[in-house]
Amino acid sequence: MAVITMREALNQALSEEMERDENVILLGEEVAEYQGAYKVSSGLLQKFGSKRVLDTPISESGFAGLGVGAAMQGLRPVVEFMTWSFSMVAYDQIVNNAGAIRYMSGGQYSIPIVFRGSSGAGLQVGATHSHTPENWYANVPALTVITPAFPDDAKGLLKSAIRSNNPVCFIENEKLYGFKDEVPEGEILTTIGQARIRRPGDQVTLIANSASTHVALAAALQLEADGISAEVLDLRTIKPLDLPAILGSVAKTNRVVIVEENKPFAGWGAQVAYEIQHRSFDDLDAPIERVTGLDTPQPYARVLEQAVMPSADRVIEAVKKILA
């Protein structure tokens, strides 16, 4: 198996799907000549030409909506937001158009579009540039929301997202682009909507996604040294939620700490906690804990931002609290 970065895995997914289906196009700021602000689209212009790999003006609302229109007309656009923080400018197009046209038209249209790009906090870029917006999009009924944590999932899920006939928000995390791991050779198509146990354990389940999965794994490693066995469940897909996997793990460990980078109010973790207590109340031996980004706009100063971010220390503290 090849060991590649998340960035390369995403690049392979784009390249393979563009090769396979000429209706797949890629558009966004700096995706073509600059080779991508984060180099995810590196080489694609050279491979597929400017008809299919398009640099856009800084007009997120315009090009996101253009993508939706093109999808209504049978193309399969991949729209890159340089970061998801800039998708706010296009929110209406994603929510009201991508998110509602199939339904509003009584099912006449498929919207096979993927919105993707980097996201996340922790790199000291301040309040406007640090959003972790999976909650906002998961709140829209018809959107699929995918947040990969590892290169193999990034590749397999992006390929599935491009083939999906639903609008997909594929939310990458900037901190992970350089993360390297094994990715199987050849075609991989990962099923959308399935969580994955990244580390088995039996005393507590750490439910996480994207970069938070790595925070949870770091915490689990330290907990092991303290003789505590933590299972790490990477949701991979926020919507649809893999309830069987979540409830199955809870049945085994009876304790849950949710780790999420996004803000706490109505975060996906709140939904997961609701589902667990609603469906598996008797499996719980302790209240569910959440370790989230703190409920503040993102500060610039490192000391402040570190306090805001979920950390292994905060996860360990939460675990020890419910195991006490």
Partner: peptide
């Protein structure tokens, strides 16, 4: 900006 904004803010 009391260290909250950084270069851009």
């Amino acid at each position: 900006s009391r260290g909250k904004g950084g270069s851009m803010h």
